[in-house]
């Protein structure tokens, strides 16, 4: 427990308290407690089927939990609709990229700004000065974000036509355009080559400087060890360990969860 003091700040931006999600007979997430502190990169790791993505889906409102609560910035957001949670300040990306394929890259990012706008149907039809101003603002924000991820050149291309690595970055840019406090990234490095992964790590680090907190699901241990401030390990729906990356890396329980356990050691009582 002394380890908790090593975290960057005391202020938790996101907390899950005794979160439980059941699918039929399977308890995907079981009494899961976690905290993401402000301004840190917190990684959620665990073997396949541990329930990491389910945690994300509960946090972002896609699933309703059977039990427990999700607290964001001190406010209970359990059971809110996904779009309300986005307006509240949590943006996410998906494990298998989910862009709007037949829209341009810039339009994709502009979609992220949707929840910050308010122009209605009549405002859009009559082009009120407020609507025009808002539309200009949406475009400016989107253009700034597309510059930031280095996709300015492909702004007018359809999202489905750009390279896979660029699509990943575009999805992150779209999430950033919702002006979130917390960015929930579901395996952002999957499918990227080593140099793209390297760029992604640098980019995520730079986001933390911009005052974003990041909640990350990741399989690539280089990424996890390289950029995380805190690591939470899940197995079979429950938290089995947490701590600084180095500590977690050497935790026997974590090694056991990943590699399975050694019968001989148990018999000889050497563990």
């Amino acid at each position: 427990m002394a380890e908790a003091d090593l975290r960057t700040t005391d202020r938790a931006i996101l907390e899950t308290r005794k979160l439980t999600k059941v699918f039929g007979g399977l308890t995907a997430v079981n009494n899961f407690d976690s905290q993401v502190r402000e301004g840190e990169i917190c990684s959620l790791i665990g073997p396949n089927g541990a329930g990491k993505t389910t945690v994300f889906n509960v946090v972002t409102g896609i699933y309703k939990p059977e039990n427990g609560s999700v607290v964001f910035n001190g406010k209970d957001i359990t059971g809110q609709k996904p779009h309300q949670i986005v307006s509240g300040g949590i943006a996410r990306t998906f494990q298998n990229i989910r862009l709007f394929p037949n829209m341009t890259c810039l339009e994709n990012i502009m979609a992220g700004q949707h929840c910050r706008g308010s122009a209605g149907m009549w405002g859009s039809i009559f082009r009120t000065s407020r609507q025009k101003k808002e539309e200009r603002h949406i475009r400016e924000v989107a253009e700034a974000r597309i510059h930031q991820v280095g996709l300015w050149e492909s702004r007018d291309e359809l999202a489905k036509n750009i390279a896979y690595g660029s699509q990943r970055m575009l999805e992150i840019a779209r999430a950033l355009a919702t002006e979130p406090g917390l960015l929930a990234l579901d395996e952002p490095s999957s499918g990227l080559n080593p140099s793209e992964t390297e760029e992604l790590m640098v980019f995520l680090k730079s986001l933390v400087k911009e005052n974003f907190s990041i909640f990350l699901i990741e399989h690539d241990m280089n990424v996890v060890m390289g950029i995380s401030d805190w690591v939470i390990v899940m197995d079979e729906g429950a938290r089995i360990a947490e701590g600084r990356p180095e500590t977690v890396y050497n935790n026997p329980k974590v090694i056991e969860a990943y590699l399975g356990y050694d019968d001989d050691q148990q018999v000889n009582g050497e563990s």
Binding site: F100, P101, M103, M110, H114
Partner: peptide, 29 residues
């Protein structure tokens, strides 16, 4: 045409393209 080039038209197209992603990006589907 004005609706197409507005926040509302884009939201409509987003829903057509990917409903889950639209919802996860703050669009009240």
């Amino acid at each position: 045409i004005r609706l197409q080039n507005s926040r509302i038209g884009r939201a409509w197209n987003c829903i057509r393209e990917d409903e889950v992603a639209a919802n996860a990006n703050g669009i009240n589907v």
